[in-house]
Amino acid sequence: MIDGLVGGRLYGEAQIRTGQNGKRFVTCKVRATAGDGETLFVNVIAFDDDVQTALLALSDADSVALTGALTPKVWTDKNGLVKPALDMVAHGLLTAYNVRRKRQALGGDAASQTPHAGDDLDDPL
């Protein structure tokens, strides 16, 4: 298991599921861009209630940053090419909405401020 941070855009809509034990969880896909410009898909599952609620509030193509446990995988596309992918059990997330809300709570104007390195933008991360 690798503890990691992934930033990207939601690919499709998050889905609510129920496990065999009756416990609810949420799944989604995030499209991230690797350093070489190649697209990487992250299969996300969330058991934390706050993370589930936040994922369900997002729409297709919304930006999101997620923290959690990563597992590297590979898959084969329809042309037979082997491609990398990641599975993530998400423990925390940050969206543009969280940043605006935090800045407003601190008395700032979200439209005129930009984040600085080291800013504590949200408690879940």
Results as ranks from 00 to 15, higher is better:
40 L>C: 08
40 L>I: 12
41 F>Y: 14
41 F>V: 14
41 F>N: 07
42 V>G: 03
44 V>T: 03
44 V>L: 10
45 I>G: 12
45 I>A: 14
47 F>C: 08
48 D>Q: 10
48 D>K: 15
48 D>M: 02
51 V>A: 06
52 Q>L: 00
52 Q>E: 11
53 T>F: 07
53 T>K: 02
53 T>E: 00
54 A>F: 05
55 L>Q: 01
55 L>M: 09
56 L>S: 06
57 A>Q: 05
57 A>G: 08
57 A>C: 02
59 S>R: 15
61 A>W: 14
62 D>E: 14
63 S>A: 15
64 V>H: 01
64 V>T: 08
67 T>G: 08
67 T>V: 14
68 G>I: 11
68 G>N: 03
69 A>P: 00
70 L>M: 12
70 L>C: 02
71 T>P: 00
71 T>L: 06
74 V>A: 11
74 V>N: 11
76 T>D: 04
76 T>Y: 06
78 K>W: 07
78 K>T: 13
80 G>R: 01
80 G>V: 06
81 L>Y: 00
81 L>M: 09
83 K>P: 05
84 P>K: 06
85 A>Q: 10
86 L>H: 06
86 L>I: 13
86 L>D: 06
88 M>E: 06
94 L>C: 13
95 T>L: 09
96 A>Q: 14
96 A>G: 14
96 A>N: 13
97 Y>K: 15
98 N>R: 11
100 R>H: 13
101 R>L: 09
102 K>Q: 10
102 K>A: 09
103 R>I: 05
